[in-house]
Simulated assay, not measured.
Amino acid sequence: MTRELKALSVHLFTATGIVFAMLAMLAAANEQWGMMFVWLVVAFAVDGADGPLARKYEVDTYAPRFDGNLLDMIIDFITYAFIPAFALFQSGLLPGWTGWAAIIVITFASAMYFCDRSMKTEDKSFRGFPGCWNMLVLVLFATEPPFWITLGIVSILAVAMFLPLKFVHPVRTKRWRAVSLPMIFIWTFFAGWAAWVDFHPENWAYWGLVLSSLYLLSAGIVQQIVPERKAG
């Protein structure tokens, strides 16, 4: 297989994410929340794998016709923000005006964030909450907190998208990557499990999902508070 064909294959692999997004949206339209999140988790796994593949096979050099970053952003907005916002609204986790407020805030803030040219820091972390509403909403489905807690979390994270707070990229942020990378695999496993059993996971899976989410949400902020030790 030529280098050009390998690079093109990475773009095609990335594009499968939009197919999984459509399957998730169809499930959401029928209020099949478990299957919706199964497809979103699959799309999340594709999104996690395509970046390293794109760098390995040098897609910008050998398949420059297609903009992999733009393709990735289009799919991410739909799978990370648009569909989760719809699910939060349609499911009734936020009743009445709170659902309307959440769906407007999530989609509007995410549209602005996903075109923010300063969203990445020098160490490849995210500047501001990276709009991972798919991860948040899945945890909310699994835990079902009172609506006012859900509304508070959504409001705080929407503001945090534009604050100078750091959130780790589990693959690209080098600091603590030995912990962050396994943690994202752990989260993906527990998330897939919770969705597969229609959000009735065993206690160990429930806490595994919660604890891995708390790490991924807080690790970058802790890194800002605790300076990195310089070698030598």
Rank of each mutant, 00 (worst) to 15 (best):
A43Y: 09
G68S: 06
R55L: 09
D60H: 14
A109P: 06
F66T: 08
L70Y: 11
A49G: 13
I104S: 12
L40G: 14
W39L: 04
F114Q: 03
A111S: 12
R117F: 02
T121H: 04
L88D: 07
A102L: 03
I106W: 09
A81P: 00
P95A: 10
W97A: 15
Y57I: 04
T121A: 13
V42K: 02
D72L: 07
G92T: 03
T98L: 12
I104E: 04
L94H: 07
F77I: 10
F44I: 06
A54H: 05
W97S: 14
I83A: 05
Q90H: 11
S118T: 13
K120W: 12
P84R: 00
A43G: 08
M119S: 10
L70H: 06
A111E: 02
A102N: 06
Y80C: 11
T61F: 08
A81I: 01
G48E: 08
F77P: 03
A101L: 15
G92V: 03
W100L: 14
T79P: 02
A109K: 13
L93F: 11
K120D: 01
L93K: 07
A85R: 05
Y57C: 08
W39E: 10
Y80M: 11
F66Y: 14
A101T: 12
M112R: 15
T98D: 07
A109Q: 11
T79A: 09
W97Q: 14
A102Y: 00
G68C: 07
F89N: 05
A81F: 01
F89W: 14
W100Q: 10
A85F: 11
F114P: 03
A45G: 12
A111W: 05
D116R: 15
N69P: 00
